[in-house]
Simulated assay, not measured.
Amino acid sequence: MNEGWFSKVVPVAVGVLGDIRHVSNARQANDLLANHWPGAGTRKHLDAKRACLAAVNGMTTVEDARETFVEAAREARILIE
């Protein structure tokens, strides 16, 4: 398994205080999606989990995983744009 480095970090606000995290790879995104996601269980959330795990395992491109993660973060209103 690899880290699945993104070409550009994805800044998100997480936690009660909205701490900013700079997600730089699919492994970090997958951890956030699995363990710290607000409102988990939506279609975009599940798609992002699948895509990030697939990118870590070399089954899809890292940029596809990044794009899917960004859409899920936007839906969850944690993406910092």
Rank of each mutant, 00 (worst) to 15 (best):
M1V: 05
M1F: 10
N2H: 05
N2F: 10
N2S: 15
N2M: 11
E3D: 14
E3S: 13
G4Q: 08
G4C: 03
W5G: 00
W5H: 09
W5L: 09
F6L: 05
F6N: 06
F6G: 04
S7W: 09
K8I: 01
K8F: 01
K8L: 11
V9G: 03
V9C: 05
V10I: 15
P11C: 07
V12K: 05
A13R: 15
V14R: 11
V14A: 11
V14T: 12
G15M: 11
G15K: 09
G15P: 05
G15D: 11
V16A: 15
V16M: 14
V16G: 01
L17T: 13
L17Q: 09
L17W: 07
G18I: 04
I20M: 14
R21N: 06
R21P: 00
H22W: 09
H22P: 00
H22L: 14
V23P: 04
V23N: 00
V23G: 00
A26I: 04
R27N: 03
R27E: 10
Q28N: 11
A29V: 05
A29R: 03
N30Y: 13
N30H: 15
D31V: 08
L32R: 05
L32N: 01
L32C: 07
L32E: 12
A34E: 14
N35W: 08
N35E: 13
N35F: 13
W37T: 01
W37N: 02
P38Y: 08
P38H: 12
G39K: 09
A40Q: 12
A40K: 13
A40M: 08
G41P: 02
T42L: 08
R43H: 07
K44E: 14
K44H: 08
H45Q: 10
L46E: 15
D47P: 01
D47R: 11
D47C: 03
D47K: 14
D47I: 04
A48K: 03
A48Y: 05
K49G: 03
K49E: 11
R50I: 11
R50K: 14
R50P: 01
A51Y: 05
A51D: 13
A51T: 02
L53Q: 12
L53D: 06
L53T: 08
A54S: 13
A54L: 08
A55F: 10
A55Q: 04
V56C: 14
N57R: 14
G58N: 08
G58I: 08
G58W: 05
G58K: 10
G58A: 10
G58L: 08
G58R: 09
G58M: 10
M59R: 15
T60I: 07
T60Y: 02
T60C: 15
T61C: 00
T61F: 05
T61R: 09
V62P: 04
V62N: 02
E63C: 05
D64P: 00
D64C: 07
D64W: 03
R66M: 09
R66H: 06
E67V: 04
E67A: 14
T68W: 01
F69M: 03
V70F: 06
V70S: 00
E71C: 04
E71K: 13
E71H: 08
A72G: 07
A72V: 03
A73C: 14
A73Y: 06
A73T: 05
A73E: 02
A73M: 06
A73P: 04
R74L: 07
R74P: 01
E75T: 07
A76K: 06
R77S: 13
R77P: 00
R77I: 00
I78C: 03
I78M: 10
L79K: 02
L79Y: 12
I80G: 02
I80V: 14
E81A: 11
E81L: 09
